[in-house]
Nucleic acid binder design. Structure first.
Lengths: 199, 199
DNA sequence: TGCCTTTTTTCACCTTTCGTTCACTTTTCT
DNA sequence: AGAAAAGTGAACGAAAGGTGAAAAAAGGCA
């Protein structure tokens, strides 16, 4: 059951009030908060919210509103923003589609997905066609695998280590040699947090 | 049912609006966003979107648009049966847990998941800790990547080719040499259909 | 028990927002 | 050129949101 704007506002207020104070507000308090003069307006809003299943209340009981927690079905839809091939710029698509990603592969942050093109990252155990899940941020701690642009042009996907004012990009494969770049030539686009492959 | 350009734009706008605000826009708001003067244009677009099954709405109800999530969004629970390390038997756990796997990585058949231990399959771009999704069957067609037991003991994970009465197990990495075994020493446990990795 | 306070519930009525429908025009695509 | 898709502008009715006052219930307290 969808909510209207006002209903949503009131539900949000109820959530916050309950979280902060531990008990629910009276109709008068809700009315005062929204600058509404009549309790009846609030009363009707609460009635609708209850009908739509967002709250529960005991009749005639003061401050008896409870919030019904939605099992928001934990939407795991994440945008597939485009494709990445080592040595090329990241290619974004105009209207990114949303694809399902298991919650276990996501982080708290802002996640997106890139399709890997070519086998240039095979040394990181990443193959053509793989989908990598990335957390969008512009910094990384030592040892994290980052999606980064060198000189704003070449995309790369390597483990990052900072040392003596420069950055070492270390391939996952220990037999390969690392790349060293100055900090200011590197723009971190995100940190790799997961991978999906379809055979 | 395919969408036109405009219909897709509107659907995208609805998705974003709903995601950000938690309630649906009014027809007037949609019209304003697209610079359209008449509500009727919006009305007809919504009608088409509903007929094509992309949204649902309640008649005469304000802000009552709901997005019908495509079934592609579904995730299925698949049992994590145990772990596999090349050269060892597959190690099954007693009470397999069920983990969510996006539908896109599953097949019609009977699927299960194995956790990869060790980096012995690094040449197949499969690393320690990866989860592989397997379709359970005892046969495979040429070129499929199979989970198989040699002599009932050693697990392996390679591309399979039948030739002149024996079986060639070809590593994904073309620089490595294939293994040849007699048909009757090999027991196919399933075919790899997907992979998930958490960093 | 009866009284007071706080809070919810109900009434009749009003205003604004919103969805729906009409007849008609313009644009886009084949 | 013709059909489908997209858009115009105005009118109307229904739903949502709100007013103000009064009644009814619940709980605390002397």
């Amino acid at each position: 059951m969808p909510l209207t704007k006002r209903q949503k506002e009131i539900l949000t207020f109820l959530r916050e009030y309950l979280k902060e104070r531990g008990y629910s507000p009276s109709l008068a308090e809700i009315a005062r908060y929204f600058g509404i003069a009549s309790l009846n307006a609030i009363y009707k809003h609460l009635k609708v919210l209850e009908e739509k299943g967002f709250i529960k209340r005991l009749s005639n009981r003061a401050r008896s509103i409870r919030i019904v927690e939605q099992e928001v079905a934990a939407e795991h839809m994440v945008p597939l923003l485009g494709s990445i091939a080592a040595g090329h710029p990241i290619e974004a698509v105009a209207n990114p589609e949303e694809i399902p990603v298991p919650e276990s592969l996501l982080t708290k942050g802002n996640n997106y997905v890139l399709r890997v093109e070519g086998n240039s990252m095979i040394e990181e155990s990443i193959r053509d066609g793989d989908l990598i899940i990335v957390e969008r941020r512009d910094f990384a701690t030592n040892g994290e695998t980052v999606v980064a642009l060198i000189d704003g042009q070449e995309a790369t996907l390597k483990k990052l280590y900072r040392e003596d004012g420069r950055v070492r990009l270390q391939p996952a494969n220990p037999t390969l040699f690392p790349i060293f770049v100055e900090e200011d030539r590197l723009r971190i686009q995100g940190v790799v947090v997961g991978l999906m492959r379809k055979y």
